[in-house]
């Protein structure tokens, strides 16, 4: 694993979010170093996606502070929020590609709408992004004509075409088989190194996250209960970390108990 720069790109302090009576985030704290691949782990329904959307300014947190490159993002800091949106991008769980636009048009969209580049420059940069993700042959195809893996790469091409400093990945491997999960994490790690962006990933796939990430955090019941390196995570004796990390082993024990023959009845 490469050395990670020590300056912080993102700081989250005491973040709270509720939906009516349901408290999802109950004071989340963590820091993401610049240039790192930071993964937030947690079981389904732990609030990982809500956390990511609060940081990405898609949802408004009820309380707490988010700092991007040292600048606070809040309702009143419109300029800081615009700057943050310009320098970050989001890769959705279902890719959120525009199905009425071709692959090239999907990638060109953020450039067309947020920059003053000429049509020729936009086309060149979009094709370049497609080429880097090895899907330039599909430039004229619609998302529905692409395979699941190609759609994921197209979504990543759209996310990186604006050359962001921070990319959010919301459950990038949800619903994929182990081989595809590996492929997606390899893709994230490879392009994160290649393009030098900071990646904030939320997932519940422990094994892949531990191999690919520079730092991991575990979200449980609305709070971060562990933050550290993958090796620290593997060595941690924190009960929640252990139960999450050793879930496969626990499953094996549970199944063995079910399959164990009942004791011989002597009566």
């Amino acid at each position: 694993m490469e050395a990670v720069a020590t300056d912080l790109l993102l700081q989250v302090e005491d973040l709270h979010k509720s939906f009516e009576d349901r408290r999802v985030l109950k004071g989340v704290n963590f820091e993401v170093p610049r240039g790192s691949l930071f993964t937030v782990l947690g079981p389904s329904g732990a609030g990982k996606s809500v956390l990511l959307k609060c940081i990405a300014q898609v949802l408004s947190p009820d309380a707490g502070t988010i700092r991007f490159a040292g600048r606070e993002l809040g309702e009143e800091q419109a300029a800081a929020r615009r700057d943050f949106q310009r320098r970050s991008s989001f890769l959705f769980q279902n890719n959120a590609l525009f199905d009425s636009l071709t692959a090239l048009e999907n990638v060109a969209l953020p450039l067309e709408q947020t920059t003053r580049l000429s049509d020729r420059e936009i086309r060149e940069r979009s094709l370049e992004a497609l080429r880097q993700l090895e899907i330039e042959d599909s430039a004229a195809l619609y998302p529905s004509q692409l395979s699941g893996g190609m759609q994921k790469r197209l979504a990543l091409a759209r996310a990186i075409v604006t050359r962001p400093e921070l990319v959010f990945f919301d459950e990038p491997t949800a619903g994929l088989d182990p081989l595809r999960r590996n492929a997606v994490f390899t893709m994230i790690a490879r392009y994160q190194r290649q393009f030098g962006f900071t990646a904030l990933v939320v997932t519940h796939d422990v094994a892949e996250a531990l191999v690919a990430s520079d730092r991991v955090a575990l979200l449980d019941q609305g709070r971060i209960c562990f933050e550290g390196t993958p090796s620290e995570f593997s060595a941690s004796s924190h009960p929640v970390v252990r139960s999450f990390r050793d879930s496969a082993e626990a499953l094996g024990l549970a199944i063995a108990a079910i399959r164990r023959p009942p004791p011989f009845d002597q009566s």
Binding site: K53, Q57, V58, F90, A96, P110, Q113, F168
Partner: peptide, 10 residues
């Protein structure tokens, strides 16, 4: 797709 636009700053 609408949320995706907002995250792009569009």
């Amino acid at each position: 797709q609408i949320v995706a636009l907002e995250t792009m700053g569009v």
